[in-house]
Amino acid sequence: MQMQFAVAGMDFGRAGDATARIKKTLQLAGMEASTIRKVVIVAYEAELNIVIHAYRGTLSATVSPEQVKIEAVDEGPGINDIALAMQEGYSTAPPHIREMGFGAGMGLPNIRKNADKLNIQSEINHGTRLTAVVYNHQKLG
């Protein structure tokens, strides 16, 4: 099953709404608690990246019994150096965003920590496409 949500840049009031909907879906589907936790972190950081850095974008989740795929596609400035952005603490967020407690440079590192697969494609002045997969490891026994 697939679901998709529009995410608006700078709309901090609603940041996290799409993630909350995805979480509810995974609970209703009966996915493992550990899977849900990882997906929630990945989806929220991806959603927040759109809110902080992009003009607009979409967050989508594709759910199957084996895995959850999170895709965040945005129109925005793009990422100049993806390897650098992956480093903990590296951030291009302006001071007023940091003052709100966001943009600490932990977004992409957190996504990488929680995703089993991660792919980021970015084009400067055009936008970014992030694809992350979390496997639903069934507990044995």
């Binding site: 099953m1 679901m3 879906t25 609970q27 209703l28 589907a29 009966g30 996915m31 608690a33 759910v63 199957s64 019994p65 639903n136």
Partner: peptide
């Protein structure tokens, strides 16, 4: 321990089918 009582079915596949229907 968790009490996973919100799921729509015990089987994930069936739960996802029901979920789509519910949507």
């Amino acid at each position: 321990r968790p009490r996973p009582v919100l799921k729509l079915a015990d089987d994930v596949e069936l739960a996802l089918t029901r979920l789509e229907e519910a949507e």
